[in-house]
Design a protein around this nucleic acid. Structure first.
Length: 549
DNA sequence: TGAAGCGCGG
């Protein structure tokens, strides 16, 4: 090989060097007249994209090289990875007009882009296109389809793609296991995990993380323990991602002692693992511990990132202690994270929940970039302070700024209606959410709506609303009705709600306490005693030890 | 001499 080409290849392997080194290399390639060779053009596009210089990448693509499928793929990917979806898709369309056909890599890239911009229509088109191109049984294309469908909530479609492939490879198995896990079907992902092993494919860390993802409450913790056992046997517990997923799994199952045990067994926990533990403590009510671990992580020299800062701020928000929260605010400022949109949203939430809505508004006003999360935080803040009209003004602003309201936006607005007693506005908003914005109501929305009705003298309407829902009805919804009955002193309905809660076999004691207190308050001591006794009986429950693997 | 599909924390 000519020495200069050798030099270029040596430089190409050092791609993580600076942008200026990349530009020098580019100049060298132009000088040696290699820039029309699609290999070198592809390499330059890739390297410029790594350095975030999309303009130079695009110039390389536009300037005269022969366009191989590699070159097309590299420029489409560069735009897609930078979330410049418009450019990515217009290039893809241009490519379809040329003699070069897209291959499995091209489709994998545009399919992923569709899921990232929640473009169901585009996804179906790309899926169809890949079939026409003869990629129906391709596993690279297939696994990206499985992931994309499951990200858009269509697990059924994902499984159709999966079962259409005769011999799934490792990534294909993992994609489907994660798809089921992400959708909460842990039983199906477990079944697949076992099928995968029977077919002779050895699981890796991805499979285990996918499996652990679906285990999200204490009812499935014994499964999680089984998976944990498997991780120990196969030494996957020392894998950083598996370790974090285990910490998260135990945290979600409200079993912080296990979560901590796993955490302390990881030799070098990264920020994600720390954050999983910290969020676990914060969400299971042990806020002081969350703050303590935040201090510890700063002490061992870790530099919190925006996500971790946001989760410690959430712990402070729960404490409703502005002193703690503003200390963390100071820390965030010193770390230079004050313009991060996630951190700012957490600050808004913390200040408003600590009673300092004005400070939250100030953070909102000066933040350089606002997204739907920051609007949601402020709307919730206005709602909590009884300022429903301000909350609705913010909603208008969201629409004016062409942002898309999400589930949390409506949840916050319904909560605002509840605090201000705006029954008709709340009902209207609930309808708009479904009809105009196509958002399916979730438990939290029903809880807000039931409370809004129940607390404003419309207990029966709330009851009929719950009656109209398909089974199984989340216990939180009946719980909301029960607390309204408690507040209004309606025993008749309270008993119905309590009965349904007991039927649903929820372990939460607070409902029974509420009912028992209601009876006691009315002097119905026998009834109160019966409820108390049933609590004592129900309490003795042992976690069955089962290994599913 | 080339690219790529799957993972944890808000």
């Amino acid at each position: 090989m000519v020495p200069i080409i050798q030099l270029i290849h040596k430089e190409l392997s050092k791609i993580y060097q600076s942008l200026s080194a990349t530009k020098k290399l580019h100049a060298l390639i132009i000088k040696t007249q290699l820039s029309s060779d699609p290999f070198y053009a592809t390499q330059m596009v890739r390297i410029y994209a790594i350095h975030g210089d999309l303009c130079s990448a695009r110039n390389v693509f536009d300037e005269g090289s022969i366009r191989s499928v590699y070159l097309w793929n590299s420029i489409i990917r560069a735009h897609a990875q930078a979330h410049q979806f418009y450019d990515a898709f217009s290039l893809f369309r241009k490519m379809l007009e040329t003699d070069i056909s897209p291959d499995n890599f091209t489709y994998a890239c545009v399919i992923r882009a569709c899921s990232e911009r929640f473009d169901m229509h585009g996804l179906k088109l790309c899926h169809a296109g890949s079939i026409v191109s003869g990629l129906k049984s391709d596993s690279i294309c297939g696994s990206s389809l499985v992931t994309a469908y499951s990200k858009l909530g269509l697990v059924e479609e994902a499984s159709k793609v999966f079962y259409g492939i005769r011999e799934p490879d490792l990534v294909m198995w993992n994609s489907m296991i994660s798809a089921y896990g992400n959708s909460g079907f842990w039983d199906k992902s477990l079944e697949l995990f076992s099928n995968m092993q029977n077919s002779g494919t050895k699981p890796d860390g991805y499979a285990l993380v996918g499996l652990l993802l679906g285990l999200s409450d204490s009812t499935s913790m014994y499964i999680g323990q089984g998976v944990h056992g498997f991780c120990l046997k196969t030494s996957f517990d020392s894998n950083a991602h598996v370790g974090s997923a285990l910490v998260t799994m135990y945290s979600r199952c409200k079993s912080m002692s296990y979560a901590y045990k796993v955490f302390s067994g990881i030799s070098q926990p990264d920020l994600v693992t720390w954050s999983a533990l910290l969020t676990g403590y914060s969400q299971s009510g042990e806020r002081e511990k969350a703050l303590l671990f935040f201090k510890k992580l700063v002490l061992v020299g870790k530099k919190p990132d925006p996500v971790l800062s946001a989760s410690v701020l959430a712990a402070a928000a729960q404490m409703a202690n502005v002193k703690v929260g503003s200390e963390i605010h100071g820390y965030v400022l010193r770390q230079g994270l004050e313009s991060d949109v996630m951190v700012c949203s957490a600050l808004i939430d913390m200040y408003s929940k600590s009673g300092f809505l004005g400070l939250g508004i100030r953070v909102f006003d000066i933040m350089p970039e606002k997204n739907i999360v920051s609007y949601n935080s402020l709307i919730l803040g206005f709602g909590l302070h009884g300022l429903a009209s301000h909350a609705f003004q913010m909603f208008e602003e969201i629409l004016e700024n062409r942002l898309v309201p999400d589930e949390s936006t409506f949840s916050a607005l319904l909560c605002a209606c509840g605090h201000a007693g705006l029954v008709e506005d709340g009902k209207f908003l609930f309808r708009r959410m479904k009809e105009e914005f196509g958002i399916q109501a979730r438990t939290e929305h029903y809880v807000h709506l039931v409370k809004l009705l129940g607390m404003n003298g419309k207990l029966e309407e709330a009851y009929y609303l719950i009656q109209s829902l398909p089974e199984p009805i989340e216990h939180g919804i009946w719980g909301a009705l029960l607390s309204c009955c408690d507040a209004c002193g309606n025993f008749e309905l309270a008993e119905v709600a309590a009965e349904r809660l007991i039927e649903s076999n929820t372990k939460r004691a607070s409902y029974k306490v509420m009912l028992s207190n209601m009876y006691a308050g009315d002097g119905r001591w026998d009834d109160a005693r019966k409820v108390r006794e049933s609590m004592r009986e129900g309490k003795v429950r042992k976690m069955p030890g089962v290994s599913w693997i």
